[in-house]
Write a protein that binds this DNA or RNA. Structure first.
Lengths: 197, 197
DNA sequence: CGGTATCGATACTAGGAGTAGCATAACTCG
DNA sequence: CGAGTTATGCTACTCCTAGTATCGATACCG
């Protein structure tokens, strides 16, 4: 794949991501203006707007980078889900990440385009992976995501602090219990045999 | 109680509340500027700022008025909690209320003063009432509130639509199960007898 | 060296939160 | 009725932020 003509982009994405989280962590989401983020990264604001169309897109991109792939490991479905909940809770507790997440989520509520970006780029990969590994339908996985992420963000938003371990464990217990009770399905297609009408 | 001197305030609070919800419902939270809300209410913007210090305070006040007292009724704790969850879910689904709630919550994440207003004026009354009627400690009631409200707002924020009845019932089932399992406490002080050291 | 695309810097537009000042309206008291 | 007091409407303003425009300089390719 030949390099396209013109001056190549300098590899500053990681620098911008780091500057974004640092600025949000130290000043809060609203005061983390694009100007300040650019200054913290040592680049011009216009350079940021050449790479990300809006501030929300920048934050989303930063979060996708910060979260990385989810560790969906465990002996059974319960362990996988427990590990996933503890993982996202820890991530939201990291400096800057939780505030960035809450901030961009907040913006997305009233911005359909940003909501689309957030849903597609950030949520969907994890949702699809969870549907696979848990062998659960989309509706149910979306419900779990709403419960877990919604709870963690509500706690962060109302108190300004991430959820403590004790409550995270209560969340794990509650959600895993729900997973194992309702329509328990261990094997995908054979659980409910098709019935001819 | 003698009327204080000067021109009395005109009784426009209800008009402003209605105009606020209407404007948010039709234009969305971000486009519902104070100017537009004032115009919809047929008053001057300065009049709004004489009664509420900030836009967030106006929305919070509007929500307190819109929610009203929670119907904490039922034969036992499970019924009370179930009714409360269905009630808040229905409220958040009403036109304008959910968007207003999500919007002001969003703003509060990065605004400690607004967070204080929201916590004190909106959440605390319901939290205290729930602690009484459920006979549960503060920490546990706060956890339930985080789960229920967080889940409902996350669904509204990610999809733009309130949670459907099926999922609300799943939420009810999940939370009520947690209420009845963990440290079940039927009587307040006698459950754990004081032990002299 | 020519072509192309990025970067930095400065200046700009658009829009919303919140404020200031003033004329006017409404009400109480004497 | 008139003086005192407070609320309202209106206009104009400040401050801040997202996002855009422009232009010279820079880096890479052939």
């Amino acid at each position: 794949m030949p390099r396209p003509p013109g001056r190549p982009r300098s590899g500053i994405d990681d620098t911008v991501f780091a500057a974004t989280l640092e600025t949000i962590d130290s000043l809060g989401y609203t005061r983390a203006t694009v100007d300040r983020i650019a200054a913290a990264a040592g680049i011009a604001k216009t350079t940021i707007y050449r790479r990300w169309p809006t501030k929300g897109a920048l934050i989303t991109s930063c979060l996708v980078d910060a979260f990385g792939p989810a560790p969906l490991t465990g002996a059974d479905r319960s362990e996988v889900l427990s590990a996933a909940i503890r993982w996202i809770a820890a991530k939201i507790g990291e400096p800057g990440i939780g505030a960035a997440f809450a901030g961009v989520f907040t913006d997305a509520v009233n911005d359909p385009e940003l909501r689309q970006i957030l849903s597609t780029q950030l949520q969907d990969p994890y949702r699809l992976a969870l549907e696979q590994v848990l062998n659960e339908p989309e509706q149910r996985v979306l419900f779990f995501i709403d419960v877990v992420v919604g709870t963690l963000l509500h706690r962060l938003g109302m108190t300004g602090r991430p959820m403590v371990t004790t409550d995270v464990e209560a969340l794990v217990t509650m959600v895993v219990a729900t997973l194992n009770e309702s329509p328990a399905q261990q094997s995908p297609t054979s659980a409910v045999p098709a019935r001819r009408s």
